[in-house]
Design a protein around this nucleic acid. Structure first.
Lengths: 216, 216
DNA sequence: CCTACCGATCGGTAGG
DNA sequence: CCTACCGATCGGTAGG
């Protein structure tokens, strides 16, 4: 089209090369870590020149930040599902077990585990970024669970004093052990779905042993 | 001295320089990570030549392995104390709370947190080493707790089917949330002792809500 | 044990 | 004329 020039940011070539750089950088940072990933390797994997990488990102730090922030999105989908599941459920135990199972599967997925490894390993180098990821992902999950538990307590369906403590306990009862083992398992063994379900059920049982409203 | 040469391994100069290299390497690996730590920097921090470093360790990987394995010892002290505490206690709840508090303090200590960050961040590069650390530290703690809980169940003081599940739940009820937050907190904020005690007490309460033997 | 040095590669930028 | 992009290379530094 002639006349008024479209903004450079919307040039389809720019959009495409920028996206390819982010995809390549994500793959390499997750696999090799921050220091061992070179800008040359990112450019090569993206199929662009290094100049193009630097046209889109000020420096390596800025590209790393972009990659990590984009990786926080997994938590959002889980939170939306969990909140819906816990809103006035017919069967509370069943709803909690469903949320626990989703949490176990999400938290042990190879992608999420590797994102955690990358950020934890760079927490001293990028403290602000690490804190931001915590707030946007695991922290946001705990907050959402705490809000849901507080609502259930208001409905008289849970008996608890501190929703935050209850949310922490529920989450780490279910996934604490699974996450810890996954983080140290560099061979990336697939978690056994049956074990995930068992841990979800056991965690739910212990949670309800403390917080269920006693039958009156 | 003349005559039969003493084994090089026992030469006090060798012992001393080897120890200085390990100390310097530990400090730098923990602070900067594997890739960003250079052999030159280690030699300089240890006050020896780079040649001396390579006289004691085949390569960077071997030195890293030595440093990480030496860091597994924190768990041993905790395990010995916990096993003693849980052997036929007068007050079970009190004994569990004491173990929980010790676990919370150990797991959130800056040194342990930084060792975890280092190994987790390098789990893909050193999968065997990461698995070895898991087995020797967090895994060994869980095993010790499971054995103690099984003994308490045999004594009729806990009611449980699977000691391993119970041990996982106890440990991560108490420290799961604390460890996760600490790992992502690159600013190294000191954990609040009062919060550690509160989490230990809350975790113990939830654990006993499920596993305490009902008063008959 | 040190100085010196290797093949290679780093993050970032030049000119065209 | 613009934006996007290239081949080539900068000064320094890596593990060994």
């Amino acid at each position: 089209m002639a006349g008024v020039t479209a903004p450079a940011r919307l040039d389809p070539r720019v959009v495409r090369s920028r996206r390819k750089v982010i995809e390549a950088a994500t793959e390499l940072f997750l696999r090799d870590g921050y220091v061992a990933t070179t800008m040359d390797a990112i450019a090569a994997a993206a199929g662009v020149s290094k100049r193009t990488v630097y046209n889109n990102f000020d420096d390596k730090d800025a590209l790393f930040t972009e990659v990590v922030l984009a990786a926080s999105s997994t938590a959002e989908a889980f939170i939306a599902d969990a909140v819906a599941e816990l809103a006035r459920p017919d069967d509370l135990r069943r709803a909690l077990a469903t949320v626990a199972d989703a949490l176990a599967r999400t938290a042990t997925s190879p992608r999420v585990v590797q994102v955690r490894r990358l950020i934890i390993g760079e927490a001293l180098r990028f403290p602000v970024l690490a804190a931001g990821y915590y707030r946007a992902a695991p922290g946001a999950v705990i907050e959402a669970l705490a809000a849901a538990f507080a609502a259930l307590a208001d409905q008289g369906r849970l008996h608890l004093d501190d929703p935050r403590v209850a949310a922490d306990q529920f989450a780490y009862l279910v996934v604490g052990s699974l996450i810890d083992r996954a983080l140290f398992d560099g061979h990336g063994s697939d978690p056994d779905p049956a074990e995930l379900r068992a841990r979800a059920a056991e965690g739910t049982a212990t949670f309800l042993a403390r917080y269920a409203v006693p039958p009156s």
